[in-house]
Amino acid sequence: MMRIFLVPAILIAAMPGAFAQTAPVAPTAIARASPPAHVRLVEPHLHVTRAGKGAPRVALTFDACMGKTDTRILNTLVEQQVPATIFVTARWLRTNPEALAVMLAHPDLFELEDHGLNHIPAVDKPTLVYGIPAAGSPAAVEQEVKGGADAMVAHGIPQPQWFRGATAKYSPSAIAQIRGMGYRVAGYSVNGDSGASLPAKIVEKNYLSAKDGDVLISHINQPTHSSGEGVAKGILELKAKGVQFVRLQDFAERGDDDTTE
C-alpha cells in the first residue's frame, strides 16, 4: 500500500528507493525460475511515539541507495541541527566517503542504519518488485541484510539495529527472517519524494502534511533531481512550525506487519 501520493500513478518511480538503478546481482542471488503468479508483499507503516501536547514529533528517514549525495539535504540537516536516520547501502558507502565523514562527525544528529548490500528487495521468493528482481531466497535475503551491516561496520559505523530494504516491500516470511537476525524493519508513514521522482513543490507539500508521530521517507542520493530542493524546503518549514525532529533510536516506535515487535 502506498501513502501520501500527490502524483499520478503513471509515474513508474513513485515508490521508495526504486528510482535509482539497482546493482547487477550474482546468478546465485536470484532464483532463475519464472516468477510465481502471486507473491504476497507488504509495505509496513511505522510511527514514533506521539508527543501529544506540545510540539509534534516527526522522524526524518533518508535512503542512501547508491550514486552520489544530495548536499542540499545534508547541509540543511547539519546547518539547522536537525537529527535524522540515514539508511545506507554498501554501494553508497563505497563512493561517498566525504558525506560519510560528515555524518560520523555529527553522531548527535545522524543515526546510520542498514539499507542492504546491493539494494535488492528483501523478498525470499523469486518475483519482481516494481520491475526489480527480488533476492529470491532466504539465503539471498540474509546476504543482502548481513552484507550491508558488515560493510557499515567496516566503515567505522556502529552495528545497525534497523533494516530497510529496497522498495520498502517485503514478503512476511522475509520480515520474520530479518527479525530473527536481530533487526527491526523500518517502514514509514509519509512518502516524501516517491523515490526522488517528484518535483520540489509536491515534495514540500508532502513534508508539510506530516503529523505528530509520523515517519517520513525520502532519498539523499539524487543531487540532480528537484526533489532534494523540496526536501530541504520542507525541513525548514517544518522547523519553523515548531516540529520536534527525532531519530528512530530516540523514541519508542511501533510498526505493523510484525516489523518491530
Rank of each mutant, 00 (worst) to 15 (best):
R91W: 02
P107S: 09
E98C: 04
I86F: 08
P107W: 09
R94I: 07
L93N: 04
E144G: 01
H119Y: 02
Q80M: 09
F110A: 07
L112H: 05
E79Q: 14
S137W: 07
A105H: 01
I132D: 03
R94N: 14
Q80R: 13
P97C: 07
A84L: 04
E113G: 10
V129G: 13
V102S: 00
A122K: 11
A122T: 11
A134F: 11
E111V: 06
L112D: 02
A135Q: 11
V129D: 14
A101W: 00
E113V: 09
P107E: 02
N75R: 10
R94T: 15
A122G: 09
S137C: 06
L128V: 02
M103A: 09
D108G: 15
E111H: 05
H106R: 01
I120F: 10
E113T: 10
E98P: 00
L100D: 02
P97Q: 09
V78G: 04
V88P: 00
I120M: 14
S137Y: 09
A139W: 01
L112P: 00
L117K: 04
L104Q: 14
L74T: 01
E144P: 10
N118V: 11
V88F: 08
H115W: 07
T127M: 14
L104S: 09
V88W: 08
P138H: 13
A140V: 02
T89G: 11
T85M: 04
G116V: 07
N96T: 07
L117C: 02
G131K: 10
H119Q: 12
P126H: 11
V145D: 01
E142N: 06
L93I: 08
V129I: 15
F87N: 05
T89D: 03
N96I: 06
M103E: 05
N118H: 13
H106F: 04
K125D: 11
H106T: 11
I132K: 13
T76E: 12
L77D: 09
V129F: 15
A101Q: 01
L117P: 05
K125R: 15
K125A: 15
I86Y: 07
P83K: 01
N96E: 06
L93Q: 02
G116H: 09
M103N: 03
K146H: 00
P138F: 13
L100P: 00
V145Q: 01
R94F: 12
P121A: 08
